[in-house]
Amino acid sequence: MNLYAFGKGLVKTVLSPLYRFEIIGAENFPKEGGILLCSNHIHALDPPVVGMTAPRTVHFMAKEELFKAPILGPILPKVNAFPVKRGMSDREALRTALKILKNGDVVGLFPEGTRSTDGILKKGLSGAGFFALRGNADVMPCAIIGPYKAFRKVKVVYGEPIRMAPFRERKASVDEVTEAIMSSIQKILDDYTVNK
């Protein structure tokens, strides 16, 4: 068993008794091909939770500072995470992400760039649109909904994939694609947040 699979099982074992996870729409996740997985970001646990619930292995883009942490730092590369400088203007990170997508794998990122302290979806960084257009990949929007309070429900909702071919054909801008991604995440939040 590789470390990613072990970590996925460990996260599930540790977190599942604490939070009541409800996974919705996992069947929407394409079974093959490059996918850019974009989620809102409300808690430090979001990356392991998305990794635990996604039906495919996810290569997470994570802020550079985490790779310098004493315990977490050495583990991150072994669970398919790779560093990015804040603002997503890191050329090495760009090359890494594009290579993963073009190899037909999944890159996970949080387009807001940082956690939302009030749970309201923030403006997405243009890096999300860049990867979606240049990476020969479609986009899987995801929303994490919940208070992350003990024994309360946390929903992880996967929406319908956003096909990038029409955007590429009409030479859409990076900002337009980023807005489309954020609108899809917002729609999931709107559809599932209130009494659903």
Rank of each mutant, 00 (worst) to 15 (best):
K122N: 11
E65L: 07
L133H: 03
K149M: 09
K99F: 09
K99A: 07
D105F: 10
C142K: 00
T114F: 15
I188A: 02
K187L: 15
E64M: 14
F21G: 02
P141K: 00
F6T: 00
I42A: 04
G34R: 06
P141M: 07
L72M: 14
R95G: 08
R152D: 03
L98T: 10
E169N: 04
L37M: 15
V84H: 04
A172V: 01
L10Y: 14
A54R: 00
P166Q: 07
D105C: 01
R91D: 13
A62C: 10
G104S: 08
D191I: 08
K63N: 13
L45R: 07
L10T: 00
E160H: 11
L66K: 13
L76H: 11
R86N: 04
V174Y: 10
K187N: 13
P111S: 01
M1I: 09
M52Y: 12
K153L: 02
P17F: 15
K68I: 05
Y19N: 08
E92R: 09
P74G: 03
N28A: 01
N136C: 05
V79K: 09
N2L: 01
V49R: 05
R91P: 13
E22L: 06
A26D: 15
A143W: 12
H43P: 05
A93W: 02
G159E: 15
G51V: 06
G108Y: 06
S39V: 07
T13K: 13
E179P: 02
F82D: 02
G135K: 08
F6S: 00
P141R: 03
V154W: 13
I145A: 04
N40V: 09
M61W: 10
S126R: 15
V79D: 02
L94A: 10
L133M: 01
V50S: 02
L109D: 07
E32F: 13
F67C: 00
K12S: 11
K102A: 05
A93M: 04
K102G: 00
L66S: 06
P55F: 11
